[in-house]
Design a protein around this nucleic acid. Structure first.
Lengths: 173, 173
DNA sequence: CCTAAGCGGAATGATGTCCTCCACTTCTAT
DNA sequence: ATAGAAGTGGAGGACATCATTCCGCTTAGG
């Protein structure tokens, strides 16, 4: 593969990440191409069609999220703090792409591994008594997904509210 | 206006409410017509185009939300409890249509009146010390909007979490 | 029973998007 | 330096989706 081709491929993936994050997975291909500064022809040369491009994105994301999780766990001995850090990082960093990564049909085994690891951490946080026992990893994923699919909301503003809602023993009224 | 025509008009509005709630405001007109059990021709006879239909929906909703608010306030002496009741009712009852009602461009004065009344209640709840002082009516509206625009989430599951996050003095970690 | 009001849904035309194709450009190995 | 393989851009064909119109038929209701 020629060096310039590789560069373009990277630019396309980066552009796709941005545009998908902003406008969802069914954004016109031409927008992605333009954002990457290439023609649609080039895009299609690298990714046979939209689904292939999204699959590549998804795979990239799953691995990145896995890394982020590892870092959070390594940096924070407390499970709940790690969950917070991971969620905050993921939402801030990836936005819409999370949807593609988690809800898409690509790389199912890697995705499952990620979900399993998150689940482990969630159970720990619950065992520590820091997180409500009546919400699970699925709920966490759903929250991520809402942020992912709803570009309008400002994560910095709402994430703390939602994370507070996930904590244990809020005043009961 | 003939009696059958009036009936059809009502069926169309009801169908539009359902379909818009499920799939958003840019749902195909034919779907609305089919759900109502009429032909598209009939739909267009009553509502000149999509924007007119949405405006009618929006107006209807704003008044309904206003009613719901009145009821919540009348039934609950406590402001925060009333906020909870109102939000829960609105989300459960209207879903996507809230978006049309609150974000749309129709009936701006009625909408403003509604927002003002909600704001009043929120301030009261905050003055009572039941609701975080660092979130306002705008945030509440945004939450409604997220539920409205994201048909995938189950309100019964997530609303309590979010409302808990809006409450005062959650444990601080 | 007459007729104005109403009705359904095929037809039309406007948009918007995917993806192909090919004449032209750029790399890079020799 | 240069051949030619690899890469590129973007116009355009094919297609799908919808909004809206139109008109021959049906029906309410006086």
């Amino acid at each position: 593969m020629r060096a310039d081709a590789r560069r373009n491929r990277d630019k396309i993936l980066e552009a796709a990440r941005e545009v998908v994050a902003e406008r969802g997975t069914d954004v016109p291909m031409e927008l992605i191409a333009r954002r990457a500064g290439v023609g649609v022809g080039t895009l299609y040369r690298r990714f046979a069609d939209r689904s292939v491009l999204l699959a590549a994105l998804a795979e990239q994301y799953v691995y990145e999220l896995m890394d982020a999780l590892d870092h959070a766990v390594a940096a924070e001995p407390d499970a709940w703090t790690a969950v917070r850090a991971f969620v905050a990082h993921s939402v801030e960093k990836s936005r819409g792409a999370i949807a593609a990564a988690l809800a898409g049909t690509s790389a199912p085994e890697a995705r499952q591994a990620l979900v399993d690891r998150i689940d482990e951490l969630v159970r720990q946080a619950q065992a520590d008594g820091a997180m409500r026992p009546d919400v699970g990893t699925d709920d966490l994923m759903e929250v991520l997904n809402v942020f992912a699919c709803h570009p309008g909301v400002v994560p910095a503003r709402f994430l703390p509210l939602i994370l507070d809602g996930l904590r244990s023993s809020p005043p009961s009224s």
